[in-house]
């Protein structure tokens, strides 16, 4: 299957979904008015990937901002990953947040409490 590579814009994140090495990255700002339109191809890709995932899937989420409609879509992405994890494959989510950004840490913890996948909270220095 093909990998997905999308360059970020002021309202949408940089996306790298790599089917060859099982590395999944969403980075930047996710504040589009219509998040479903943006995330649907990503969720569909994960559906296909779930059929024959890599032994280890590493997920890196590093968001500066995300709006509420994205928050629901990001949960949909995590739910697809949860299925892969439940099927006995290794999935690890790294949730990056800037130092002192308690809101972003809390957002990660919210997902961690909903989704049954190992989460790692990683603090990064401000750019």
């Amino acid at each position: 299957m093909e990998s997905i590579s999308i360059e970020g814009t002021p309202k949408t994140p940089t996306v790298e979904f790599n089917s060859n090495n099982g590395k999944i990255e969403i980075k930047g700002r996710s504040i589009p008015e219509n998040s479903i339109e943006f995330y649907k191809p990503l969720v569909d890709w994960l559906d296909e990937y779930a059929a024959s995932p890599k032994e280890n899937t590493e997920v890196n989420i590093q968001l500066e901002y995300f709006n509420t409609s994205s928050s629901k879509c990001i949960l949909d992405v995590f739910k697809k990953l949860e299925v892969i994890h439940k099927d006995g494959h290794s999935v690890n989510i790294n949730w990056f947040f800037e130092e002192d950004d308690e809101d972003m840490l809390e957002a990660g913890e919210d997902y961690q409490s909903i989704i049954k996948i190992p989460f790692k909270m990683i603090e990064i220095e401000e750019e």
Binding site: I36, S69, S71, K72
Partner: peptide, 10 residues
């Protein structure tokens, strides 16, 4: 989601 795409979360 509502029909306007918002999650009712705003």
């Amino acid at each position: 989601f509502s029909d306007k795409g918002g999650g009712g979360l705003g």
